[in-house]
Nucleic acid binder design. Structure first.
Lengths: 248, 248
DNA sequence: ACAAAAGTGTTATAATTACACCCATGT
DNA sequence: ACATGGGTGTAATTATAACACTTTTGT
């Protein structure tokens, strides 16, 4: 921090930074959800001017008493009613012209949620809608850039870390998990090799129950071994055969 | 972006966001350097109140006409005279209490530079000093947290991408490169396996000249094949044997 | 001749890939 | 009985890890 322009505020007896421009700081959330079948993104439609009727990420300005993560949590909670979901800082965006109304720095966060569990809680006031990941509409400002970056980040991270489990319900089948990976990477994965790899992680506990909704035979449900999940989260597991062509 | 508080500015005819707190936005740079022998970090010593005589990252406030990356470039250039060095956004920091003087959001960037090439250009006005990576002093605010995060990011990224070449001079020896990896990972690496892995990337071009400074036999200089470097930068190469225990 | 770092070679083990087949069940 | 997705097995290939020795040259 370059402090050479700091002055002492007589009224409070504290140092302050003089003659510096203060800027609006916002947080925008890229919210990914999976319903066991399709990977989606949650967007809101602007009901008011300016930018009325345009699709946008859910966002808000940072408040005096909260940190960036807290602001992202608040914004996510306001829209979805969700708490304690996976939420990670993506990047700060600060081009002078990114917001045509007023200069605004935006810190983007992405969230991974299970649509089934939470869809009833979504706040209708924002006209939120789930879009298929490849069928999202045009977005305001640089929000599409944020979404692309978030997709890339997820691809990158999910190649080595089990973050995609955050999108699944408590119990899920291996075909559902594979289907999720296939959508994230836009690729077909060999189911035999996939099952072996997933099982080799030791992260899954097989349940007695079966899901019969997608086949006659039915697929066994599994649940996450939460202890192992937490312990192994940072370790590297090659979930994806050829993680070649990602852009970092 | 939540725009519900936008109003129309009569004087300019543009929409503006009303009743929102504007905050100071700074950029701080974690500058890593390698002199062919030791991995170091560049810090500045505060010459003025407040926080006089304390060590700090080089930073500055964002200006009206520049984006975040541009601000980081400017700050880096001001201190080191360097341009076109590797510079990557690390994370935005925004705890309300992170800066005791005034609420400030800081976007941290890290830079990778070759100390030999640039050390003459360093601006003395900031009392900058290179510290060994493991012998850095206490820093102001949350700067130590930033440095730790940057070290982790470099470890993470360098395990799969050839970013550490950014720290090397145009010509370098493989022992120098290995030494750099060993310092980044605080680990001994088998030189036989290391050489094979580095050569298998096809990224290096062997030069006729030898560096005799560190052994009697001398080690051949190599240079980067810049075309292949750019092409392969995003692809995954396992540079590090067991990338197990990194924290993401 | 010897010390010290540079550089080459080999082999065992483990991970990855590319395959083909059987299973369970609702219709 | 058969169609459909679920699940198991195996063999070839490739990558990784562990290891020892030879080369060069200044002193």
């Amino acid at each position: 921090m370059k402090l050479t322009k700091a002055i002492k505020d007589k009224s409070q007896g504290k140092y302050k930074y003089a003659e510096q421009a203060h800027i609006l700081v916002a947080v925008d959330c890229i919210i990914f959800g999976y319903d066991g079948d399709e990977l989606k993104i949650l967007l809101i439609k602007r009901a008011l001017e300016p930018a009325k009727d345009q699709w946008s990420l859910m966002g808000g300005f940072i408040e005096a008493n909260e940190n960036l993560y807290g602001a992202a949590e608040r914004i996510l909670h306001t829209l979805t009613g969700l708490e304690e979901v996976y939420l990670e800082q993506l990047k700060a965006y600060g081009d002078p012209e990114r917001d045509p109304f007023e200069r605004t720095i935006s810190v983007a966060y992405f969230a991974l949620i299970d649509i089934n569990k939470y869809k009833e809680q979504i706040n209708d006031a924002y006209q939120a809608k789930w879009f298929l990941i490849n069928e999202a509409p045009k977005l305001i400002f640089d929000h599409e850039k944020m979404v692309e970056k978030a997709k890339n980040r997820i691809r990158y991270k999910a190649a080595f870390h089990p973050i995609l489990f955050e999108l699944l319900p408590r119990k899920f089948t291996i075909p559902q998990l594979q289907n999720l990976y296939e959508q994230v990477y836009n690729a077909k994965i060999d189911n035999r090799n996939f099952i072996r790899k997933v099982n080799s992680t030791g992260l899954l506990i097989k349940l007695a129950e079966k899901d019969k909704s997608s086949s006659k035979r039915g697929a066994f449900y599994y649940k996450l071994d939460l202890n192992k999940y937490k312990a192994k989260f940072s370790s590297f597991i090659n979930f994806i055969p050829n993680p070649e062509n990602f852009i970092l």
